[in-house]
Structure formats: structure tokens, C-alpha cells
Amino acid sequence: MYNQIIILCYLLFNVYIGTCFHQGPIEPRRLQRWQGPIGFPGTPGQRGASVTKGQKGEPGQQGVPGHIGQPGERGVRGYPGPIGPLGFPGVKGREGSPGLHGPKGEPGLPGMPIVCPVTCPVIRFYDDEIPPEDVDLGSEERPSSAICKYITASKKGAITPADAYWVMEEEKFPVKCDMKTNRTCLITKENMSEWIGETKLNVPIAAKGIWLSKIGFDLNKFNTITRNQLLWLKRQSENVRQIIRVYLLNTIFENINLRILNSHDYLVEEKSSETTPMHYTIKYYQNSSVSVSGESWNYVDIEIIDDIDRLPVKDFYVKFKEEAPKNVFISVQLSDLCFG
């Protein structure tokens, strides 16, 4: 109470002084300096009511991509990995052009003496010599020692195409003389279709083709003469013409590729190329089929004319152009073999 009175007197004194000196009203902020002391803390309030946790918000939108960073330093070279599996075979390349002829080889060693079962054939032939004019016409009793081209004009009239002209004294055999071309021709089968049953071969379905010698082709039966007789004819001749008849059952010639192997192991094809310069000629016929045992066989003739060193042929390679039909048979027979 005493303090309140002192404060009241102090306030009244200030009012009086302010009025006498015409001062303005006392600012409220000056009155705040005389605030009382801080009171005691109040009692804690009650704990607020608990609430449940809200649901998770939706994901925000993806931010803008940042700038591409600087390239890092080159890493250390790793160890070699294991070897991978073998790849598929590549496509077969094209055949190259024939190479140049190599240099001439050294002379070979002398050959071994020939051992003949009875007597060795004596090969007589004429190079630049003119054969004697008294060449025998050649009978079975007295075979000629020369082929037909050496028969003189005065004696040609005595020979007809149907006559058998016997040659080679040591191993006689009959031939025919074609006086128009001066060729000596082997006597072949008159009716070749009768021999189909003995010479036909079943061609297996082989995508890569097959040599007829692998399935039973007999060259000795095909030529109809021995090796010595053939050598005798070749040594007196300059060129050869060979005609081969090809019989086919259950297919036609246009469906196959036929390659022929000549005496020097060179291939002969229908069309010449860099790799196979030799070619043959196909002769088609209007009625090119024959019936044998109720089966219809198609046939063509193949003609080859070449130097004496390359003929006659010795094997045939057959390959189908498309998928091979079943049960295909082939028969190749010598139609004509003439030496000139």
C-alpha cells in the first residue's frame, strides 16, 4: 500500500511538471518501463487429443534430366575372354580362273619291261611316211596292218559300209570303214535298246551327284574292245568322234546335269567355260522314246569330237537340277566310236 502511494505521488508530480512546461502527453512506452516483476509460471495445460497418421502422398513428377557428365577415364584393359564356339561354314566362293601352265618337268625314270601273257602286240603306225599302196583290205584270215584311211582310192570301191574290215594282226578285231570321212569305226550293237536290261543302273537320290562307275558302270563292256586294240587305233589316228546314247527311265535329260570324264581326266560339259573348255553336242529326236519290258525309256545322243589324246571317255557324272525323282534308272551305251 505504501509503495502504491509513492508511485501515485510520482505520477502526479510528473503530470504537474509536464503541464507547467507545456510538454505533450506521456508516451505509453515510458510507462512500460515501470512494469512489475515477472510472475510465476502457470500450470502445464492438458495434452492435446492424438490424431492418426495421414496417408502417403502421390509421387511427385519426374525432375528435369541433368546435364551429361564429363567422360570418365579409360579403364584398365581386361583379360581376353574364352574362345567362342565354331561359327557356321561360309558361303562357297566362286571358282578361280585357270592358272598358268607350270614349267616342264624333269624326264621320268625308264619304265618297267612289259610282261605279256602270250605275245605283246606290235604297234604299227604311220607318221609322215606314206603307207604302202598294197595295204590289205583286211579279212578275218588276214587282218590289215593299217586303219581305213590308208586304203588307196583304187581299193575303196571294194568295201561297203556293211562289210567288216578286220585289222591288227596280233589281236584281230572287226571294224567298219566310212569311206566318205575316211574313218575307222567300231562295230557297235545294232539294237541298243535290247541291252538296256543288262546295262541299266539305278541312280540314288544324291544331292551332290554321283559317278556312274560308283554304281556299276563297266568301261570295258562299254567300249567293246580291249585296251591293246584301243591303243592300236589311237596310234594310227589324229582325231576321234564318239557318240553316246543315254537312256533314262522316270525322268528326262533336261532334268539332269551330265558331266563326262575324258581320257585325260578333264570334264566335258554341255557348255564350255574357263574351267571346262571342252563341250559335247546333244542330239534330240522327234520320237525319242522306246518301250522295253513295258517301260518307256527316253533317250538322247551325245556327240564329242576331239583330239586323239582326249578320247574316248571313261566315266559319267550325273546330278539332278532339282529334287531328284524316285526310282530313276540310266543306261549309257556306245553308239559310235570312229578314228580318223
Rank of each mutant, 00 (worst) to 15 (best):
I6E: 14
I7M: 09
Q23R: 11
P25V: 12
I26A: 08
R29S: 13
R29K: 12
L31W: 13
Q35R: 15
G45T: 13
Q46N: 01
R47W: 01
S50N: 12
G54T: 04
Q55K: 05
Q62F: 15
V64L: 05
V64W: 00
P71F: 01
V76G: 00
P80T: 15
L86I: 12
G87M: 13
K92T: 15
G93R: 08
G96F: 02
L100E: 13
P110K: 09
G111Q: 02
I114G: 14
C116S: 13
P117A: 04
E133Q: 10
V135W: 04
E140G: 00
P143C: 10
K149T: 07
K149R: 15
I159Q: 12
P161H: 02
A164V: 00
W166N: 02
F173G: 03
P174C: 04
V175T: 15
N182V: 05
C185I: 04
C185D: 05
T199E: 14
N202Q: 14
P204C: 10
A206C: 09
W211P: 00
S213N: 10
T226W: 02
K234V: 08
I244M: 14
L249W: 04
T251E: 12
E254K: 14
L258E: 11
L258N: 13
R259W: 00
H264Q: 10
T276H: 12
Y280K: 11
I282T: 03
N287Q: 06
S288P: 11
V290P: 08
G294A: 03
S296N: 14
N298P: 08
D306I: 02
K314D: 06
K326L: 04
I330G: 06
I330Y: 09
V332D: 01
L334G: 04
